[in-house]
Amino acid sequence: MSDLAIAIDEPSLLVGVVGTTTLSALEAALKARGLTLGVALERASTKTVADWLASGAVGSASVFADPADHLVAGLEATLPDGSKLVVRPSPRRSVGPDLIALALGTCGRLANVDYAWLRIHVKSAARPAFPLPGGRDLDPPLTEQENRLVELFASELRSGRPS
């Protein structure tokens, strides 16, 4: 994990940030450089980055609003058995399941974020926004079946079986 609490990759418009950093501290550091996380932080600014991601990154845009843009490019996380998961930053990849999904909105059941690479924006830059798919709840409650799968993953991840 990086020693820096906040590491900005300006060419890529990414910020690497320790999970215990609060969103307000992150946004202040970005603002000083004319940058922003670009999310609506009103209710979440006192949260840490790790907690914010674990609770579903409230205030961030839907992937359907700008499909070319993703919030999380990479992360380092601790799994339920204490082992470490590292997903190096990349705009996209096609190397099996997207393991970032284990940490987003799972409330720490599958992974706890130690460090994250997040997309940032130049304050003045335009942000594309497609209309979202209509007539659907894009945040439906977890079904019983999905919840059972999450529990199964958690149980397997806790088992600490070797690779």
């Binding site: 579903g56 992937v63 190397v95 909105g105 945040d139 079904t143 079946q145």
Partner: peptide, 24 residues
């Protein structure tokens, strides 16, 4: 037979199956 739904705020299990190349 399982049904997985996109969830903007997670948990979203769809990204785990996409790219799994028939192994999950």
């Amino acid at each position: 037979v399982v049904h997985l739904h996109h969830r903007t705020s997670g948990p979203n299990l769809i990204p785990l199956v996409i790219g799994s190349e028939g192994t999950l």
